[in-house]
Design a protein around this nucleic acid. Structure first.
Lengths: 244, 244
DNA sequence: CATATTGGGTAACTTATGTTGCCATACACT
DNA sequence: AGTGTATGGCAACATAAGTTACCCAATATG
């Protein structure tokens, strides 16, 4: 994948909520980024290590996670193509979590120094980064709510709805559903459940006719009902936040 | 409380991780803020409403929460004196959560426009705000892990340790513990538990000798063991992150 | 080819946590 | 003083979710 494609996608990400003036756009496109393709399960960030670069997902999926003392894993966020994986690394000395690819992925890798320089000298780029972080924090809050106060069936429905929404934003949604790029164990780790119980919950939603399945391809014949089951409202995704 | 005290505290918050040049400090102190005292349970932000101002907690405690369809509440973060409650409001059109005081509190209220202007024209202030957000996101991730993958006893121990650490940072810790400004029901809402089970868990920690109690005053005779029980490591609080 | 390995599926059983309900104390309000 | 309301405490019982232990199919791997 050519480096220009790389930076186009980063730019699109930054401009999702607020357009940038031409000078800023050029500065973004002039970043010294390079592309890189990696297999599934590649570590992009390791807890406790100092960050080395800013990574943007061009294609493929990724997740962040932490391991607790018992050895259990909790996935704390999912990332889709276009997501900037590590604004964290901009100003924090050590990573507080791991990040790993879920699938094969193409990455844009930007040196931290260049990204810092950009954010420092371009207030509107800084604002775009800030907005992205605000929205990420909002999603984290909703995940806390999901895990803390909803039962397994609702949690799963909520995750499926969120993924559908986010796929939709970046134009990756098919008319009849999508392929969720996660094993049932990974879904469990994202929802604070065991894989066995995820399996039970999938079966439940399936038998109720709320989802259909062909392997990992999931269809949503009654999206309205599914959203109700998952108590899902996309407000927390702040989809339409353009500010003058 | 005088307005100057107000802004001093905001400045101290912003400079926690990176000192600001004199011009920036003066700009912060020149913000058109005003003080306000409010009783417990005062709403500072309401989900779905457009933000009206940036609030900084001068004294007292606050929390953010969301209500799910079943009526259950999940507290998604706690805030101590010095915390800026709403950088969110800087660039997002609608609040995605509620914020409410836990106790009597003194607030510094800054108009959004002034805060935006400051962040736009002062890159180093923008950086300080960004760092604050990055750390807040890190805490949110740790809460997801806590709720998703630890049992009630560990969750509670973790919360107590986090609170101890954060009280310590701002110089509010007493040698022998602190008064946790929350009812058992609120603790439950923060941990994804019921108040009954919080009561059980407090009793358990108490009987093991890991905490002592006089009303809401909690002591930590064996902080090391308590941290082990809570699988607590303060790395995620990014306490020492000064970057050149 | 043989055979690990991974992922999905499911049953039987266990357990952590939730639910309901009740009592006691402390305080706030009239 | 008297009555309500919030909070902590606790026991009895209910249940959602975890644990363990299998099977099967698909697909890497030697």
């Amino acid at each position: 994948m050519a480096d220009t494609d790389t930076l186009e996608l980063l730019l699109r990400k930054l401009e999702r909520h607020t357009p940038l003036p031409e000078a800023d756009r050029r500065a973004v496109l002039a970043l010294p980024a390079h592309g890189r393709s990696v297999p599934p399960a590649t570590y992009l960030v390791r807890e406790g290590e100092p960050p080395t670069s800013c990574v943007v997902l061009l294609s493929g999926f990724a997740f962040r996670h932490k391991i607790v003392e018992s050895g259990a894993r909790q996935i704390v966020s999912l990332h889709l193509p276009g997501d900037a994986l590590d604004f964290q690394s901009l100003y924090l000395r050590y990573a507080d979590h791991n990040a790993q690819t879920l699938t094969r992925a193409d990455l844009a890798v930007v040196p931290i120094a260049a990204m810092r320089e950009l954010v420092t000298t371009r207030p509107l780029v800084a604002r775009a980064v800030l907005m992205d972080l605000l929205i990420e924090a909002s999603i984290l809050r909703e995940w806390i709510v999901n895990i803390g106060r909803r039962n397994a069936r609702a949690r799963l429905a909520h995750l499926l709805c969120e993924f559908a929404c986010r796929m939709d934003i970046i134009g990756l949604s098919e008319p009849d559903g999508y392929a969720l790029p996660m094993t049932q164990e990974q879904i469990g780790d994202a929802l604070g459940l065991t894989s066995v119980h995820v399996n039970r919950s999938i079966k439940a939603l399936s038998q109720e006719g709320l989802i259909t399945r062909k392997g990992r391809l999931i269809g949503f014949p009654h999206i309205k009902e599914l959203r109700e089951v998952g108590d899902f409202s996309e407000l927390y995704l702040h989809l339409d936040e353009a500010i003058g």
